[in-house]
């Protein structure tokens, strides 16, 4: 596990988050290195641990019989909350914002495509309550496949830009 994880992706936090004291930031050129470290325990658990417990409908907070319009509306509603551009405003939860948005988008991408949704529904209903995601196509659950990297990808320190 990588133990250094700074509070945020550099750019927006500096300008938006009131909690980031400018004194804790040492500027080097145009990029920021935020010194605030959070322990690994605070890092969100990766999608692979949580994904199998909730269906894509639950991710979007909708009924299994939701219409296409409802799916789109739910996606947009959630995007306004979990999209990293929004989620960075004021709160420290950015470490998970990208992951959360990706999860929401993945659910939307599957459910808004009639074919993928039909495939997903078939598996969902036949396997419940123990949903096996491994039987789904990888496009539906990149989380599981990407989980091998999960400990590495969301590293939150920023080095200087490479020019």
């Amino acid at each position: 596990m990588i133990s250094i994880s700074t509070s945020t992706s550099f750019s927006r936090a500096h300008f938006v988050s009131p909690k980031v004291s400018p004194n804790s930031i040492k500027s080097r050129s145009s990029l920021r290195i935020s010194a605030a470290c959070t322990s690994t325990a605070e890092r969100p658990t990766t999608g692979s641990h949580t994904a199998p417990t909730s269906s894509l409908y639950e991710v979007l907070g909708i009924q299994a019989g939701a219409t296409c319009q409802e799916i789109k509306a739910a996606y947009r509603r959630l995007a306004r909350v979990v999209h990293p551009d929004v989620a960075t405003n004021g709160q420290r939860g950015q470490t998970s914002a990208g992951d959360q948005f990706m999860k929401v988008h993945e659910a939307y991408a599957t459910l808004s495509d009639p074919e993928k949704r039909a495939d997903y529904d078939r598996v969902l209903y036949s396997r419940r309550p123990t949903v096996s995601f491994s039987s789904l196509g990888r496009s539906m659950c990149t989380d599981t496949i990407a989980s091998r990297f999960a400990g590495y990808t969301r590293r939150k320190w920023e080095t200087d830009q490479c020019w």
Binding site: S9, R12, P84, D85, T88, Q94, G98, R148, F149, R154
Partner: peptide
């Protein structure tokens, strides 16, 4: 395994790891 990650700041990271069959770890 080659993983590509574009984060919220549009920064691209490329990760690569090697796994041998029968092992879960790099």
């Amino acid at each position: 395994n080659v993983c590509m990650d574009i984060d919220a700041s549009n920064v691209l990271r490329v990760l690569a790891g090697v796994v041998l069959p029968g092992s879960r770890h790099p």
